[in-house]
Amino acid sequence: MLAWFGAGWLWGSYWTAAPGQGAIADDGDFDVPVNIHLQERWALNLDFHPGRLGNAEFANHTAPWKDGTADTGPITLQWRLLANDGQQVASGTALFHRVDSWSTATVSCKQPLPPLSPGRYRLAGQLSAPPPAAAGMDMAVAIRALNGKAWSSWQLDLAWWMGLLNRVFVLPLSIVLLLALVGHALWQRRQRGRPH
């Protein structure tokens, strides 16, 4: 069971990992290696992290973005996707108008990318005009699946089902069996310690 659990975790980690992610330099430049494993629908993500801000300060600065009440104007990201030989495969200008997802340490905006064939690439470009509220934050770019709940690849579907099976059945059953083995070992030890 532990072998199955480990295999499921490795499978999910490999197939669901972002094909590419990296920091944006202070001058707005970025150059990130990308490895597309699957013929999937991908999106270009712009991520904001706390950086020099504390978590509470980061939450305060990004709260208007999450609520959609701030009129910061679009954030412009010029990007190019290059093959290993340096040939340009795709390019564009992404205008981020709103926040699409957030957690304690990350706020993300995303734009769909054109279809990409599996292979190795480089994502390079320039971020311009970040909102003033982003001062002190770390910014990064990442390529992730466009819709984490509607994949077109069987590898990602299998990773999702294996993860669900592991959380709902394999992990709880493994814990129960481990506790039963420990209890049995303690009982056996106690039995051996009794005088005959």
Rank of each mutant, 00 (worst) to 15 (best):
L2P: 11
W4P: 00
F5W: 12
W9Q: 09
W15Y: 14
W15R: 02
A17H: 14
A17D: 14
A18N: 08
Q21W: 12
A23N: 00
D26L: 06
D27M: 00
D29F: 11
D31A: 12
V32I: 15
V32K: 10
V34A: 14
I36S: 04
L38T: 07
Q39I: 03
R41Q: 13
R41C: 00
W42D: 10
L44S: 03
L44F: 03
L44C: 04
N45G: 00
D47S: 08
D47T: 08
D47I: 06
H49I: 04
L53K: 11
A56L: 06
H61M: 05
A63F: 06
K66P: 00
K66G: 01
K66T: 05
K66V: 07
D67T: 10
D67C: 00
A70W: 07
A70L: 13
G73E: 02
P74K: 04
I75H: 02
I75Y: 01
I75R: 04
T76L: 09
Q78V: 10
W79S: 01
R80C: 00
L81Q: 00
L81W: 01
A83G: 14
A83S: 14
N84C: 04
G86E: 05
G86R: 10
Q87L: 11
Q87S: 12
Q88E: 07
Q88W: 06
Q88R: 15
S91G: 07
G92V: 00
T93A: 04
H97Y: 13
H97D: 15
R98E: 14
D100E: 11
S101I: 03
T104G: 15
A105R: 12
Q111C: 04
P114H: 08
L116G: 08
S117A: 14
G119T: 06
R120P: 01
Y121S: 07
Y121N: 01
L123S: 06
S128A: 11
P130A: 01
P130V: 05
P130N: 02
P130Y: 03
P132R: 10
A133F: 11
A133C: 07
A134F: 02
D138K: 01
M139K: 09
V141R: 01
V141F: 00
V141M: 03
A142C: 03
G148T: 03
W151H: 13
S152L: 04
W154R: 07
Q155T: 00
L156A: 05
L158A: 12
W161Y: 13
M162R: 08
L165E: 02
N166Q: 05
R167Y: 04
F169L: 14
F169K: 08
V170K: 04
L171G: 09
P172I: 07
S174Q: 13
A180G: 11
A180I: 10
V182G: 10
G183W: 05
H184E: 14
L186A: 13
Q188C: 09
R192H: 12
R192Y: 05
G193A: 15
H196S: 15
